[in-house]
Amino acid sequence: MLRLEGLRAGYGPVTVLQDVSLEVNAGEVVTIVGGNGAGKTTTLRAICGLIKPQGGRITVDGRDTSRLAPPEIVDLGITMIPEGRQLFPFMTVRENLMLGGFKPAARARIPERLEEVLTLFPRVRERMTQLAGSLSGGEQQMVAIARGMMANPRLLMFDEPSLGLAPLIVKQVFQIIDTVVASGTTVLIVEQNIVHTLQIATRGYVLENGRVAMSGPGPELLRDPHVKRAYLGV
């Protein structure tokens, strides 16, 4: 479905991603592992069209999407749940969710989709009329995920969904992700908490200094001595 070939990208004159190649096929759960500043977020931003590649190719179903703007990527069925939640703070939770279904294809089905999504998030349902900015961190993350799902994407990308959350909430977030995966949505996930994501990942990529240093089935990477040493501290 999604393929990056020799992607080079960065900010202005700075190149962060030197050479990133990876692929995500329909129905897979793919994860990107890497230390702080390795370029994980940058990779997701390039896929979304938020930054333009300096070189290499990004293709979706064989079509080059390197030059497309973010709304066009959303129209192709690719949605990112950004790092740090990034809600619309002075709008209600309901308005945030409706914006998740802004693209024309999703707009027609907002009421049904809202119902489907809210069954996964009972806590969010209780907060529908509250301003998003006044929610707790865990609630905000739930809204951010629910908002992303409102677009009914084929590929849902998570950037650090468990960042800054209490262990109990982290568990809930991973349960939600498992549900998303079980529903057949393809998932590309970036997570510090690599034990859980590598266990469920069809394939993982280890990103170091803007390059893919290693890749393989998730559970296999989890047993790899280098991964263990560098990312699990054992």
């Binding site: 703007a69 973010p70 990112m80 990034q86 709008m91 409706m98 914006l99 802004f102 707009r107």
Partner: peptide
């Protein structure tokens, strides 16, 4: 309206708005 919400969304979070498919 959807367009009206999108307009407010751009004011409140310029980074997230395009991720919703807003131009």
């Amino acid at each position: 309206t959807h367009l009206g919400r999108a307009i407010r969304a751009v004011a409140q979070n310029r980074y997230a708005a395009p991720l919703m498919g807003i131009d």
